Simulated assay, not measured.
Amino acid sequence: MAARDDAKKVRKQVTPEGGFFNFFKGLVAEFKRITWPSKEDLKKVTISVIAFCGVYVIIVGVIDFGFNSLVKTILK
């Protein structure tokens, strides 16, 4: 008897309020509230991200080269 009551409680917890279709209705409503950037803003942000990544790669490469040279010098 107790196992049946536990199973009923689990079923009630698994099914969310509103159901499956209301989730997608809410999702569509949230997408309508998004303010999308203009093409110009998107281009500027994309260029700045790519430039930052390039600078980051160069800095990490220089540090890696320096540590590699340092270790080779120490172990020589």
Rank of each mutant, 00 (worst) to 15 (best):
F23M: 06
K8Q: 12
I63M: 13
R4C: 06
E40M: 08
G26T: 07
V45D: 09
A29P: 04
I59W: 13
K8I: 09
T73N: 02
K39R: 06
S48W: 14
E30F: 10
A2R: 14
G19K: 02
F24A: 00
W36R: 05
V14S: 02
I34P: 00
Y56W: 14
F65Y: 13
F21A: 02
E30K: 08
I34T: 03
R11Q: 15
I63N: 05
R11T: 10
A7H: 06
S69Y: 12
V14F: 11
V14H: 02
V14Q: 04
V28C: 09
I50H: 03
A51I: 10
F24G: 00
N22W: 07
D6N: 05
M1R: 10
Y56I: 00
E17Y: 07
A2N: 12
V55M: 09
V55Y: 09
R33W: 04
V49L: 11
W36S: 03
I74K: 06
V49W: 06
L27I: 00
F31G: 01
A51F: 13
M1S: 12
D41R: 07
F21M: 05
D41E: 15
F31H: 03
K76R: 10
D5N: 06
D41V: 06
S48R: 14
F23T: 02
R4P: 01
K76H: 07
G18P: 06
I63F: 15
A51E: 14
I63T: 10
D64H: 08
W36T: 04
L42F: 15
K44A: 15
L42H: 08
V28G: 06
E17G: 02
G18K: 05
S48M: 11
G66C: 14
K8N: 14
V57Q: 01
D6V: 12
N22M: 06
F20P: 01
M1N: 09
K43D: 15
P16C: 01
Q13T: 04
N22H: 09
A51V: 12
Q13D: 05
F31W: 10
I74N: 03
A2L: 14
T46K: 08
T35S: 11
K8H: 12
N68F: 15
K8M: 10
V10I: 15
K32S: 09
K39F: 12
G19I: 05
F20C: 00
R4T: 07
K43F: 12
D6P: 01
N22P: 00
F67A: 00
M1P: 11
F21Y: 10
K72W: 08
A2K: 12
Q13M: 09
A3T: 08
T15I: 08
F21G: 01
D5Q: 12
T35H: 13
A7Q: 03
V71N: 03
A2E: 14
G61R: 01
L42G: 05
K32E: 15
V55S: 04
